[in-house]
Design a protein around this nucleic acid. Sequence first.
DNA 1: TTTACTGCAAACCGTTTGCAGTTCC
DNA 2: GGAACTGCAAACGGTTTGCAGTAAA
Lengths: 138, 138
Amino acid sequence: MSDLLERLRDRGWRLTAQRRVVAEVLNGEHVHLTADEVHARAGRLLPEISRATVYNTLGELVALGEVIEVTTDGRAKRYDPNARKAHHHLVCTRCLTIRDVPAGAGDGTLPEDDRFGFAISGVEITYRGLCPDCQSGA
Amino acid sequence: MSDLLERLRDRGWRLTAQRRVVAEVLNGEHVHLTADEVHARAGRLLPEISRATVYNTLGELVALGEVIEVTTDGRAKRYDPNARKAHHHLVCTRCLTIRDVPAGAGDGTLPEDDRFGFAISGVEITYRGLCPDCQSGA
DNA sequence: TTTACTGCAAACCGTTTGCAGTTCC
DNA sequence: GGAACTGCAAACGGTTTGCAGTAAA
């Protein structure tokens, strides 16, 4: 995570308290927060951080490829800091929880005949189903 | 397509001019219109159709499983009438065109070990890349 | 000191909603 | 005739933007 801050500084970023806090909040595995959740958690560490700054920072992190934007439903985008290893998502159809699943070997290979001339640069796979808690009626 | 209208009537739908027109607009392969586009096209056939009715109708068609809601970007949802055969999507990263690709045999099989206890009910695969036109700079 | 960044507030876009009026069956 | 549907307009949630002020380098 401090890696992230270093990388950002190397790219000419000013390391402001706000950016530090956003980076902090996005630290971890299986983190898929909405911008609003990031704002709420960042606000616990730095009370006066504004929504606009959170949106700016998230947008910049996405542009730099440090964070992945995930839209598994029509609602708010979620921000996934696990950009360094290829993975897909498992989404609970009931509680909307998201889990990362490692990318498999055969993923993202579309037969030549089905490519319609597209030059494919990436694949996203979203598995949908009930998570263990929702299966047991929790 | 008239099949669709029959199916809807069988389910107790009132066949209003508005619904007929929305069904008409959604007819075809590789159709991935936004609600607004549906509204615009429907408006050419039935000038006074309202946005609310288009949204209502689209929502109902989705609930009935006749149309699939596709969110390939964070912007507007797109409505895909090709709900009868399983397929995935090829999305141009530049012009955002969408093409359907047939679902392959091995799609949607996630190794038991990677399921985290989820009961998987469906998979969506989105391939991203440049479409032929955008590759040639068109 | 300079210029990137922040916070505010207003605007924005896609979508949903409440309700009065209309129309299908 | 009655319930289902439509259209309007207002409200909504998530996101973006313009701009004056602040702070990192």
